[in-house]
Design a protein around this nucleic acid. Sequence first.
DNA 1: TTGAAGATGATT
DNA 2: ATCATCTTCAAG
Length: 171
Amino acid sequence: MKHRLDHTFFDRDALEIAPEILGKTLVRILPDGTRICLPVTEVEVYRGMEDIACHASKGMSERNRVMFGRGGIIYMYLVYGMHWMFNIVTGEPGHPEALLIRGVGDIIGPGRVTKQLEMGRDFYGEDMVLSDRIWLADGQLIINFRTGPRVGIKYAGEPWVSLPWRYWVEK
DNA sequence: TTGAAGATGATT
DNA sequence: ATCATCTTCAAG
């Protein structure tokens, strides 16, 4: 039986968690009762106020406030007026950081993930340590993974555009 | 009050 | 390469 991950997993540095979250099992119970269990296959790290690509870089706002809290909380936001992004807050309170879930199983692409998992605004602030509709459980440890620059953040400039803060499972 | 930018995806 | 589509935030 797989066991749910708790704060001992989430309340750590995103850069430490990123390689470990690959292969962990995302469990999602859809409104109709369908249970989806898929391994995390791609994530990106957004870390701290100094990271220009991180939504918290300009300080706390109504949108990003959950990132300043403790780990395990879900940060949802809409991009391009149509795609919901699913992020899991990590780290200690006061240090805003999160992991953008870009792929689970064969579903690659942050917008596709939320569409398939039927996730939108109503997941903002959801606690993955306690929720009965979404959580993270043990999974196979991935040793074959790659890293590279994050997608879609050219505006952030160096060094942020070049940091290898995107992690994905090697096929 | 307004406008511009944006952690994307589907299509041409 | 373009478009679909709309929230957020900062400027005026």
